[in-house]
Design a protein around this nucleic acid. Sequence first.
DNA 1: CTTAATTTTTAGACAAATCTAAAAATTTGT
DNA 2: ACAAATTTTTAGATTTGTCTAAAAATTAAG
Lengths: 218, 218
Amino acid sequence: MTLSEENYLKAIFNLEEQTHKSVPTNAIAEMMETKASSATDMVKRLSEKELLKYKPYQGTRLTPKGKSHAVKVIRKHRLWETFLVENLDFSWDEVHEVAEQLEHIQSDKLIHQLDKFLGYPKTDPHGDPIPDEEGNIAKIKKKVLAELQQEDEGICVGVDDSSSAFLKYLDKLDISLGNKIKVIEKEAFDNSMVIQVEENTISISSLASKNIYVRKTS
Amino acid sequence: MTLSEENYLKAIFNLEEQTHKSVPTNAIAEMMETKASSATDMVKRLSEKELLKYKPYQGTRLTPKGKSHAVKVIRKHRLWETFLVENLDFSWDEVHEVAEQLEHIQSDKLIHQLDKFLGYPKTDPHGDPIPDEEGNIAKIKKKVLAELQQEDEGICVGVDDSSSAFLKYLDKLDISLGNKIKVIEKEAFDNSMVIQVEENTISISSLASKNIYVRKTS
DNA sequence: CTTAATTTTTAGACAAATCTAAAAATTTGT
DNA sequence: ACAAATTTTTAGATTTGTCTAAAAATTAAG
Ligand SMILES: [Mn+2]
Ligand SMILES: [Mn+2]
Ligand SMILES: [Mn+2]
Ligand SMILES: [Mn+2]
């Protein structure tokens, strides 16, 4: 399995998770930041290897074999991100690029031992669940902050957009995983919110509140 | 810089260190386990990028730029090997393959932080010096065990052959880095030796004793 | 239902890294 | 010195992954 094949597999897995429908070629190309013709070529190769089912013009779906491989790559990605933050003083907005490389290292022992070294973490630095050795992914109970009503309280458990720009913005507002968040006010006009994060009271836009996940506590 | 280019650079660096002469194409091909024609192609590409000087039929020598890059890859290789042994319970005969992949991960911060995390180790699990951030490689004072005379004593500081087979053999004999070794007897007939390693007395062949490095202490 | 817009595939080209087979240069042996 | 052996390079082919441009299929609109 080549690096490029693994990246496509991961992209297709994520797209399929979102819609639970067969994935259009253009969606793959967009996610991979490549051309549709390249995506077609790759999809044909992966189909040849029985990692996915592909019908021309009908899009693709991963086979169990393809899914299982994609999940392994995601497991590695999230374990490495955890290592970078926990042990090498990376911040959560710096880890993605490096994990994007590390996720392709081939060694069962390495990943097993890394998991052990980290103490079998359940989630990565962005709150995303780390698949276990058998490929099971725990479902994390979460709601978008934007859905909470005035006076509602929750704990920050993840982000939808984990781009460096958004994560840095959250750092500036002192919002991080595990923080207690309370909705003070919701502005109907633009859907912005005034929230209390631990001790601080701040205002955030609708765009931001739609990208923050919380576990409701009240 | 591609993975393959980095592997060639490292191979050429090592060959040049051995002989301090310009490196023949066949030697490169042999070390890379590839064909001479492939080595020629790659050497031309690296020459194009000014990482080495290549004159047809005359062999190649790395430029300072090429050397510096090779040393960076070696630094990464040895830091990762150290991490695997120190933190992930790998044994010294298991690390090479994985480090061979990890050495190509591109991130200055990663390698700087890994070095810090490990406590700035001076040598890797095979006793080889780890180049510092500026590319300086400490010279390790060492002698092959085979050169010691009867009654001489030393400390095991490295191995020449770090193949898995040889390292496992050393494990079986309980020889590891830092062990005190004393020459009890040298057999003129086949150059085998009887040595005392810490508390154990064992006999080793000439081939083995030529692949073990010691720092003489008496 | 037929045309227009969009999506997807095919055709052909290119760079990287490799190979085999053949040609060319260098080194060795007498 | 000259033929033979060895080393090295070239020529041409292959695989992976990508691209552009054009053709084909599907979907949307009037
Ligand atoms: Mn990746
Ligand atoms: Mn993540
Ligand atoms: Mn390598
Ligand atoms: Mn080593």
